[in-house]
């Protein structure tokens, strides 16, 4: 039996090495905030764990496929063990352990995301900058709370966010379900009629749709005819620039 186990194990190791080598490539999308950093970390840990699981199956399949095949029309029979011994028990324990690890990773990082256990959303309860967001078919309205500034995805070209400031989006919808997704921050929550959902992000990288297309708000829940175009570009700017922009907007409003 070990005559087969060792080469098969080798195959597994090689395949796993090839799989894990993808970490040499930097292929995940732009990291625009600590939330995205955290996401990348968990994703990579799970990927690092998932690759050997997948390659285990592949190695076993490929090895059996090439070594145990027969062309004698099914006359010959193979070994006769039935898997009633220890092996299935070991397998159960091992897979349970793997699952437990994935669970713990998920639960720990989930608890960081949920300051408010009975709320509906991700992140902190309080933030220095709150943007009241209203979704409707097929546009977004962003209203900077207490700042008297309102942006409309149908009219304004960009949503400005200051760097290194915690921003809380509070979402409502006036018609159907929408979903606010910002790929650069790896954050998403639905906007639902009848309740307020929220998410917080703290952009830590300057950028805009021109530098990377993932700096955008995208509706991620099918909301009807023009769901496709329900998006808006985001620009993360220095605090000073943000303040100036805000002031100019406020001036326009009060005029």
């Amino acid at each position: 039996m070990s005559k087969h186990l060792i080469p098969a194990a080798l195959l597994w190791v090689v395949l796993t090495a090839i799989g894990e080598a993808t970490f040499l490539l930097d292929w995940l999308p732009v990291v625009g905030s600590p939330e995205a950093e955290e996401w990348d970390l968990i994703f990579n840990v799970l990927l690092a764990m998932g690759i050997p699981v997948f390659t285990f199956v592949v190695a076993a399949l490929v090895y059996a496929f090439t070594n145990f095949k027969t062309s004698n029309d099914g006359v010959e029979t193979g070994a006769t063990f039935k898997g009633t011994g220890m092996f299935p028990k070991v397998w159960l324990v091992a897979t349970s352990a793997l699952v437990a690890v994935a669970m713990v990773i998920g639960l720990v990082s989930l608890s960081n995301l949920q300051a408010d256990k009975s709320g509906y959303g991700w992140g902190e309860d309080q933030a220095p900058l709150v943007i009241e967001t209203t979704a409707q078919r097929f546009s977004w309205t962003f209203s900077y709370k207490d700042k008297n500034v309102e942006l409309l995805s149908a009219k304004d070209s960009e949503l400005l966010l200051p760097i290194d400031t915690e921003v809380k989006f509070e979402l409502n919808s006036i018609d159907v379900i929408h979903s606010l997704w910002i790929p650069a921050f790896r954050m998403k929550i639905d906007a639902i009629p009848g309740r307020t959902t929220f998410l917080t992000v703290e952009p830590h990288k300057l950028g805009s749709f021109e530098t990377d297309e993932n700096f955008r708000v995208q509706c991620a829940e099918l909301c009807g005819l023009n769901h496709t175009i329900m998006s808006m570009h985001i620009r993360v700017v220095e605090q000073a620039e943000f303040d100036a922009w805000l002031a100019s907007k406020q001036a326009k409003v009060s005029r």
Binding site: V57, A64, T70, G78, G83, P88, V99
Partner: peptide
């Protein structure tokens, strides 16, 4: 995932040392 894993156990254990008629 745990019961699902057992399906793999059964499939892989069966082909191992079998005479696969492909």
């Amino acid at each position: 995932s745990i019961p699902t894993g057992l399906i793999f156990l059964s499939a892989l254990g069966t082909i191992w040392m079998g005479k696969l008629w492909l």
